[in-house]
Amino acid sequence: MSEVNNQRRAFLKTSLGAAAVAIAPGMLLFDMAHGSTEPVSGKVRWGMLIDTNQCKPGCDECVTACNTENGLSGGKLPTDSQWIRKIEIKDISTGRQSSLPMMCQHCEHPPCVDVCPTAASFKRADGIVLVDKHRCIGCRYCMMACPYKARSFVHEPLHDQNPDVPRGKGTVESCTLCVHRIDEGLQPACATSCPNKAILFGDLNDPNSPIAQKLRTVASTQVRADLKLNTGIRYQGL
C-alpha cells in the first residue's frame, strides 16, 4: 500500500511541477503584453513645440524615424499612409519660406472624435488622439473632418507589422505620438531623431517642464487657430 502511495505522490509532484513550468512563461508573457494596468493621468497633456527656424528644408529625418518606428512603408503614393510629412510653405505676400513637419495635432476638441460613429476615434486622458483599430469600421468620416489631413486609410493588406503598433487593412490611422514609447517613458521617434532638435516634446500642463517654460517665453502658434481646437502641437517661427 505504502509503495503505491509514494508513486502517486511522486506522480502528483511531477505533474504539478510540469504544469508550473508550462504555465509560468505564458503568465509572464501575458503580464508583459498586458503592460501597465494603471490608467493614464488626466493631469498630463502631452504636446510638442516645433521650431520651424530649426527645421531644415529637404530634411526628413523625422519622417523616416516615424516610418521605421511604426512599421510604415514610407511610400508616397496617394494610397500610402503618411503619419507625418514635411510641408514647405511660402508666405504669398512676403515670400518668406519655412519648412515644418505636419502630423496629427492632438486637438483638445478633435473633430475626428466628434464625427466618428462608433467612437473608435478617441482622446486619451493625457491628450493623445488615437484610433481603436478593433472598433474602426473604415467609414473615413474622420478623414473628411480633420482640418490637417493628418489621417490615412489603410488601402492594402499589411505584412510584418511592428507588434507595438498594430494596424489594420480597411481602418483609419494617424500619428499616435508614439504612445507605446511614451508609456515606457520615452519620447516620440520624430522628436528624438531630429538632428536640429527642432521638436521639443513634453507635458504642456506641467509649468516646470521644458516645453511649458519655452512656450512661456517664445511666440508660438497653433495651425488653424481660428478653428479653436486647441492643438497639442504648437509651432514657433511661423
Binding site: 466618428c116 460613429p117 462608433t118 472598433r135 469600421i137 487593412k169 481602418t171
Partner: peptide, 25 residues
C-alpha cells in the same frame, strides 16, 4: 463600401452621440 463591412454590428452597438453619422444610423 466601408473599410470593414464585417464590423457593421460594431456600428450598431457602439454609438457616439456626437456623431451625425451615428444619428443617421
Amino acid at each position: 463600401d466601408l473599410g470593414r463591412p464585417d464590423r457593421i454590428i460594431v456600428a450598431a452597438t457602439n454609438f457616439n452621440i456626437t456623431s451625425v453619422f451615428a444619428w443617421n444610423i
